[in-house]
Nucleic acid binder design. Structure first.
Lengths: 327, 327
DNA sequence: TTGTAAGCGTTATCAC
DNA sequence: GTGATAACGCTTACAA
């Protein structure tokens, strides 16, 4: 790569015939004599001068840079989240350092260490390591999962679960099923199930839950479904899946066995993932407000003074039909 | 946000009872007396010292940071591309600064200027501005679209187009159609059409092309298709779309009109986008080697000495069936 | 070999 | 209000 030596403040000062301090003041918007300002601005323009953020960061200990630590961009939820985070950060005058962990807790640790080394102003992270502790001097906001006492932003998972149950019952389901697969790490997303069960209990509904923790295969779900199909009819008529992906797969599985969706069985997922090609939801779903979550996380990070930030901020979700329910 | 004052090299030197220069040498792997090294390492460990990349960058003019300028992460192609770029860069010891332009050429310009200001070591960009010129002193590698004479990495679009045509003919199609929608900016992706047409011509096949440039609606395609359906039968029996998204939409449109895919009409798209939920292609497709493209771009950027980099590097594509062809 | 000191491009604190 | 000057934390000659 080529060397890159841009003009420095000193060059501008020489060009404008003023001192270094004056140039600095003009650059930083500190009042300065009218004609001096004019001269400096002209010189800046002429030389195409740009401040060196590294020198500035060294001096001020402020880098206007936030690290985004995310598992992967293969999943649309993460991709869109990073998109919104990055755009909003840029609007606020911040840059984003992207770090992909690939769900690997070793990499997560390395990223946190690297982030601190880069003297970034803060970290926004969605991680899976249970024991990821970070220098107390750095600001951190997490998404969905907690890291020590740093503020966490998530959608209102509990209410999302309730909403799903209520919607299914409202649409006539009598025998409900909840399917959950996920990491053993307890995060905010794990409240979807309790929310669902709570609503079922409250309504006195008949329901069953299956929790697959720390497993990498959904096979048990499909075995269960298979076993509960009698004479081409599933025992359950309403299913809540803890992600849209699972919802879509369950839907396909049942259709392949001649069960009609949504006529025989109705399915609701969670996330609100929109297909890039069709612009539609893959299944009926509880929609997470990704843009709002991103903005909330950024605001929380940038305005974090002391420790008065709430440990958890849950944003409102809403239900959206996606063809797998009768509405 | 909280202040962040980590231990400095001076602290380590004091702790270890050696001089600043010695610490620096240990940190940078320059040979130093065994016992000195031990002492420095112990002190480093004890204080939890980490080099300040801003100070180092200021001194060395090397930041180990590359800017990724991308239109959006809502489209899976860009999301996966950024994922691969970022992971590979990290493997090579580089960090990635993510900049989302939202297809806005004003933002693209701002990003380029910002990137240079951040004294990054290079830029990898996928942009739409026709007139995006950049300081000659900074290394740039582009994806799919050219910016002045910087090296560009893409998949072998021309051959991809040929492949699609050959495959359709091989699968028995007699009357081919090519559908293209895209920006007026001519990039490597625009070679898909010529490749397709070339293969058709060579084989003496009957084909028709529709190019929609600089339009934001695909309506003309669907109007055309509608007009060429007679007695529930489309005049064409093989369609090549310049993206998987379009392929999927065309497929849906025809199915909705009672035309069977792939029995009556076969469709091939371009990109190789895999659905996150099912893991399948949305339609039969020409697969771009995204990971290889990312690695090639990074290697080109990092090893760029002088200007001996090829202006264009096209990576091999392959065909993959995805349910919209009879194979 | 190891220590010393001069910068890298800024900002900030002073006298003027 | 403006211009020297001392840091910021590091690398790198160069001197010891």
């Amino acid at each position: 790569m080529k060397p890159c030596d841009a003009p420095t403040m000193k060059d501008v000062a020489r060009e404008a015939g003023v001192s270094l301090g004056t140039v600095s003041k003009v650059i930083n918007g500190i009042p300065v004599g009218e004609q001096y300002r004019k001269r400096v601005e002209a010189a800046t323009e002429k030389l195409g001068y740009q401040v060196n953020n590294y020198a500035r960061g060294l001096k001020t200990n402020k880098t206007y840079c936030v690290a985004l630590v995310m598992p992967s961009l293969h999943h649309p939820f993460f991709a869109v989240l990073v998109n919104e985070l990055s755009e909003y950060l840029m609007q606020q005058g911040y840059r984003s350092l992207l770090m992909i962990t690939n769900y690997d807790s070793l990499v997560e640790k390395k990223c946190f260490s690297l982030a601190q080394q880069n003297k970034i102003d803060g970290i926004i992270a969605l991680t899976y390591s249970p024991d990821l502790d970070v220098d107390e001097s750095i600001s951190v906001v997490t998404i969905d999962r907690h890291i020590s006492n740093h503020p966490c932003v998530s959608s209102d998972n509990f209410h999302g679960g309730e909403l799903a149950a209520e919607k299914l019952m409202e649409l006539g389901c009598k025998k409900l099923l909840f399917l959950h697969i996920g990491n053993v790490i307890v995060g905010e997303a794990e409240k979807r199930g309790p929310g669902f069960e709570n609503a079922c209990r409250t309504a006195g509904a008949d329901y069953h839950s299956i929790w697959l923790t720390d497993q990498d295969t959904e096979a048990p779900f499909f075995r269960f479904l298979e076993e509960h199909i009698h004479n081409g009819k599933l025992e359950y008529d309403g299913i809540f899946c803890n992600s849209d992906g699972l919802g879509v797969r369950v839907c396909e599985f049942l259709k392949a066995r001649g069960i009609r969706i949504p006529e025989d069985v109705q399915i609701i997922g969670y996330d609100g993932i929109v297909d890039y090609a069709t612009g539609r939801y893959g299944c009926s779903t509880i929609v997470q407000p990704i843009a709002e979550m991103a903005q909330t996380a950024v605001n929380l990070l940038l305005n974090q003074q002391g420790t008065l930030a709430p440990r958890n901020t849950s944003l409102a979700v809403h239900y959206a039909p996606g063809g797998t329910t009768r509405d």
